[in-house]
Design a protein around this nucleic acid. Structure first.
Length: 556
RNA sequence: GCGCCCAUAGCUCAGCUGGAUAGAGCGUUGGACUACGAAUCCAAAGGUCGCAGGUUCGACUCCUGCUGGGCGCGCCA
C-alpha cells in the first residue's frame, strides 16, 4: 500500500514538473508515513513541505500540496480523498473496502507472505559469533548468535542471497595456551607433579578434554616430545571445543553455511601476498622494522601495525586478508556482527575496505551490547578467564530455545540487555514470548473449533469481506498489510527487534478483538469472513516467528 | 587526555532515519470467565524526552557546549 501511494504521488509530482507547474532541480525521495491519528487519514506525506522550500518562486506548502493533489491519477480508485492539513501535510484516506482486497495477497503467498524482492538477489556475507575455540559459548555469545541469525533470515526474506559464516580464530597464541592448559591437566591426571599456571584456562571443560585423551590414548603423550605433544593437544582441544560450539548453536537454532578457519589464510602465504600487494599500492609502508597500514588516510586516528618487528603478522593482518577474501568470493555486501567492546576497531576495518578498492558502506558492522545475566533480579557474576560463566547450553536447557531467542530480540542490539533466567522461564504475562505464541495457539484453537462445527477454512474468493467493517477488524487488516514493510525496514536498518515489537502489536490487536467479538457466530457469512481474517493473522504470526527462529505452537 | 555509544513514565524499553496531541510492557489501583483457550481483555493514574543554546515551517530525532553512566584507545585477539 505504501509503495503504491509512493508511485502515485511520485507520478503526480513528475506530472507537475513536466507541466512547469513546479520548478525544481530534482525530485526528492517521496516519503509516506503511517499516521497515528485517524483524523489524519491512513497515510500522510510531507512532500509538499519538502518541495516548498526548493521550488523556484517559493510557493507556500499548502499551495504546493494542492497542485500535486490535482495531478494524482488514482486509476484504481484506491483513494477516498486527499486532505491538505496543518502546515502542508497531504493526508491520504483509503477507500473503505480497499483494505480487505489486499488480504488476497496474504492468502496467495501463504508462507512467503512478508518476503519481497527488495534485495534483487544480491549476495550478502554475514559473519557472526566467531568466538575463539578456547571454550564453550557462554551467554554473552548468545545474543550475537541470535541477532546475526535473525538478521540473516530477514535479509533473505527481503530478497538477498545470504551466506552465513563463522570465523574461527584459531591461529593466535591463545591456541597455544589452550593446548598447554589441556596438557597440564593431562599430566596432572597422570600423577605428574605440575603446577597449573594462572594464565591457562581454568574451566572444567579443559579437564574433560584431558580425561578424554587419557581414555582414548592413555599416557602415551607423557613421554613424547613436549612440542609435538602440545601441537597434538592444541588441535585436539580446538576440534573438540568447536564440535561442542556447533552442537550448542544447532540446539539454539543457529546454523552456518561455513566455518572459516583463520589458519586457512596462512596457507599458500595468502596473508603475505596480500600485504605485498598493499605495499605496492602504498597503503602499507615500512618504518625499517615493522609494516604499517596507512589507515589514517581513510579516517582512522593512527596507522596500524600489520607485521610486527619479529616478522609475525598481527591479528589485524589476518582480518584484512579475511575480508579481502569475502570480496574475492563475490559478495556484494558484508555484514559483521561484533561485540560492542570492539567498536574502536571499526575505523581501521572500514579503512581496509576502502583501501582494497571497495565502497565504504559495502561493509556494515552491527554492534551487540553486553548482556547481564540475572536470576530473580540478582546479577550473576561471570569471568571468562576464571572459567566462571554460564554457558549458552545451560541457558537453552533451562529456559528453552524460544524464550531465550525472543528475549534477546526484544531490544535494539546496541543497548544493554538484562536477561533474567527466572523471568524467561515464567509462563506468565511477564514473558512476552508466550503472549505472541498464545495468540497463535488461540487462533489454531478457533480453527479446530470451526472445523468441528463443519466449517472449512475459506479461501479469499469464498468470503465476503464487506462483513469486516468493525474498527478492530480494519486495524487488524492494516497491521497485516504492514508486515512486508516491517520486514523490509528491519532488513534495511539491520534491526531485528522491529519484528518482535510488530508481533507484540499484532498479537495485542488480536487478543483485544478476540475478547470483544466472536469469530464463530450464528451468521455463517460473517463467521466465514472472520475465519478468513484470523487465518491471515495466523499466517503473519507464523511467518514472523519463523524469521525469529521461534516456534509457533498449535497448542500450549 | 582523546574517541565512540547511551540518557524518554516508579522499573525495563520502543519511537519507522526531521513530522501533527511522545507510546508499550511490568508494577500500582479498579473491573471482565453459564459462548471460540483468563498464558487473555477493559479502565485509571503516571512525562520539563538529562541540562542549556542553535539549525527550520516543524527537533525525542540533526549541530555545539555541559552534567552523569558504559566502552575503547597493544607490535593482544
Amino acid at each position: 500500500m505504501k509503495s503504491r501511494l509512493r508511485t502515485l504521488l511520485g507520478d503526480a509530482v513528475k506530472a507537475c514538473v513536466s507541466q512547469d507547474l513546479l520548478e525544481i532541480e530534482a525530485v526528492p525521495l517521496i516519503e509516506i508515513d503511517i499516521t497515528k491519528d485517524a483524523a489524519f487519514g491512513d497515510y500522510a506525506s510531507n512532500i509538499a513541505m519538502v518541495l516548498a522550500s526548493r521550488v523556484k518562486g517559493k510557493l507556500p506548502p499548502r499551495k504546493v500540496a494542492e497542485v500535486i493533489r490535482d495531478h494524482i491519477r488514482d486509476n484504481d480508485g484506491v483513494l477516498e480523498r486527499v486532505d491538505i492539513a496543518g502546515p502542508g501535510f497531504m493526508n491520504f484516506f483509503i477507500r473503505e473496502g480497499v483494505w480487505s482486497t489486499l488480504l488476497s495477497e496474504v492468502d496467495n503467498l501463504g508462507d512467503c507472505y512478508g518476503s519481497s524482492d527488495y534485495g534483487e538477489g544480491k549476495k550478502i556475507h554475514i559473519e557472526f559469533v566467531s568466538a575463539n575455540p578456547t571454550g564453550p559459548l557462554h551467554i554473552g555469545h548468545a545474543r550475537g548468535a541470535v541477532v546475526g541469525d535473525v538478521i540473516a533470515n530477514i535479509q533473505e526474506a527481503a530478497g538477498f542471497s545470504v551466506f552465513r559464516e563463522y570465523y574461527i580464530n584459531d591461529a593466535g597464541n591463545q591456541m597455544n595456551n589452550l593446548g598447554k592448559s589441556v596438557l597440564y591437566r593431562y599430566l596432572e591426571f597422570l600423577g605428574d607433579d605440575v603446577e597449573f599456571p594462572e594464565s591457562c584456562y581454568q574451566g572444567d571443560y579443559i579437564k574433560e578434554i584431558a580425561r578424554e585423551i587419557i581414555d582414548k590414548h592413555g599416557g602415551i603423550y607423557r613421554s613424547k616430545d613436549q612440542e609435538k605433544a602440545l601441537r597434538i593437544f592444541t588441535d585436539y582441544a580446538a576440534g573438540a571445543i568447536l564440535d561442542g560450539i556447533k552442537e550448542d548453536l544447532k540446539a539454539f537454532g543457529v546454523v552456518f553455511d561455513n566455518y572459516f578457519s583463520e589458519r586457512n589464510l596462512y596457507k599458500d602465504d595468502r596473508v603475505a601476498t596480500l600485504i605485498k600487494e598493499l605495499e605496492e599500492k602504498h597503503v602499507v609502508y615500512s618504518d625499517g622494522e615493522t609494516l604499517w597500514f596507512r589507515t589514517t588516510d581513510f579516517g582512522d586516528e593512527k596507522d596500524r601495525v600489520v607485521v610486527r618487528r619479529n616478522g609475525e603478522p598481527t591479528y589485524f593482518a589476518a582480518d584484512i586478508a579475511y575480508h579481502n577474501d569475502k570480496y574475492i568470493r563475490g559478495f556484494d555486501a558484508i555484514i559483521d556482527i561484533w561485540g560492542a567492546d570492539h567498536h574502536g576497531y571499526i575505523p581501521r576495518m572500514s579503512a581496509c575496505v576502502e583501501a582494497l578498492g571497495h565502497e565504504k558502506n559495502s561493509l556494515k558492522i552491527v554492534l551487540i551490547q553486553l548482556v547481564s545475566l540475572l536470576r530473580d533480579g540478582i546479577l550473576i557474576p561471570m569471568s571468562t578467564r576464571a572459567g566462571e560463566f554460564v554457558t549458552l547450553k545451560e541457558v537453552v536447557d533451562e529456559v528453552g530455545k524460544d524464550a531465550a531467542r525472543y528475549n534477546f530480540l526484544m531490544r535494539r542490539s546496541d543497548s544493554h540487555l538484562d536477561f533474567d533466567l527466572e523471568l524467561a522461564k515464567k509462563q506468565s504475562n511477564e514473558n512476552p514470548v508466550y503472549y505472541v505464541q498464545y495468540a497463535h495457539a488461540r487462533i489454531c484453537s478457533i480453527v479446530r473449533n470451526a472445523e468441528e462445527k463443519g466449517y472449512t477454512i475459506p479461501l479469499y474468493d469464498e468470503v465476503d469481506l464487506r462483513f469486516l467493517k468493525l474498527p478492530e477488524e480494519v486495524n487488524l487488516i492494516k497491521a497485516i498489510i504492514r508486515f512486508p514493510e516491517v520486514v523490509e525496514g528491519a532488513a534495511i536498518a539491520l534491526e531485528p527487534h522491529r519484528l518482535t515489537f510488530y508481533l507484540n502489536d499484532l498479537a495485542a490487536l488480536f487478543h483485544s478483538y478476540y475478547n470483544k467479538h466472536r469469530v464463530l457466530s450464528d451468521e455463517e457469512s460473517l463467521s466465514k469472513a472472520r475465519l478468513f481474517l484470523i487465518k491471515t493473522i495466523l499466517t503473519v504470526v507464523r511467518n514472523a516467528l519463523r524469521l525469529l527462529g521461534v516456534s509457533a505452537p498449535e497448542r500450549m
